Computed example of a mutant assay.
Amino acid sequence: MINIDYSDDVYKPSDDTYLILDNAECGKSVLEMGSGSGLIAITLARQGHSVTAADISPEAINLIKHNAFINNVDMEIVRSDLFENIHGKYDTIIFNPPYLPVEGESPQWAGGKDGFAVTGKFLATAHEYLNPGGNIFLILSDLTDIESFIEKNRKYEFIKLKSMSFDFEAILLYELKVRK
């Protein structure tokens, strides 16, 4: 059993978090970008993966450290603006980015005008941090122009794994692999 404490200042695990947890098949070494409360990272560390949890928010970093401690989990925890302070390569990178196409709201969910402000920056360099044959798990929203985004990011193969529909949107979990 995993115990997770929450904070009003940090994204609380929601349907998108569990969509990843229930469907991502990760390699041995995992980077979770934007780890928030640390639920995914802690779960994977408990399963025996070598995990690095990264987040830009100091509040999130403190919460991840706290949650790792109360779950007696050993993992690397790094404050980083995307890959700014990340070193090394990973078998799997997980990112539940701010994906809603809105501006001026919480950076926990506001993805800019097109919903891809953060995700686009992430994908620009994510391949450099993947081991050969590695994969990325990424959440996107159907409130955005996913097809155009995929077309702009041709270095990756996008494989739709699962989706969840709500009254106002559907969220989609993609597995990405670097094209050879």
Rank of each mutant, 00 (worst) to 15 (best):
K89V: 09
F69Q: 06
I146C: 11
G112T: 09
P13G: 12
G48W: 12
F95K: 02
A41Q: 04
N67T: 00
K113D: 02
F158Q: 01
Y18I: 01
I171W: 08
D16G: 10
Y129K: 14
V78T: 09
G88I: 03
Y90W: 05
H87S: 10
E169W: 12
M1F: 07
I136P: 11
L172H: 15
N3D: 04
F95V: 02
P98K: 11
S80A: 04
D9L: 15
E32N: 12
I86F: 08
A45F: 06
D9M: 14
T125F: 10
I86H: 09
S29T: 15
I56L: 15
A24V: 11
D15N: 14
L19T: 05
S165H: 05
Y129E: 02
Y11V: 02
I42N: 10
P58G: 05
V30R: 06
S35M: 03
F95G: 03
Y156P: 08
F116L: 09
D142N: 15
K65P: 01
N96S: 03
K152A: 13
E157R: 15
A110V: 04
G48P: 10
T92K: 09
D145C: 11
T119G: 03
K152I: 00
L176H: 08
N85D: 05
L138H: 03
K162Y: 03
A24G: 08
S14H: 05
F166R: 13
S148M: 11
N135I: 08
F149C: 10
E84W: 01
L21K: 13
E147H: 12
F168L: 06
E84L: 06
L173Y: 08
A24D: 05
S141T: 15
I94R: 07
C26L: 14
L140T: 05
A110D: 01
D55Y: 11
I159H: 12
L19F: 12
S50Q: 15
T43M: 07
E84R: 14
Y174E: 03
S35G: 10
Y99H: 10
E128F: 09
I42G: 10
S35W: 07
I61E: 03
N72H: 04
N23V: 04
V78K: 09
F122T: 03
Y99Q: 07
G27L: 12
D8K: 15
D74P: 01
E25F: 12
H87K: 13
S141F: 10
E157A: 13
K28F: 08
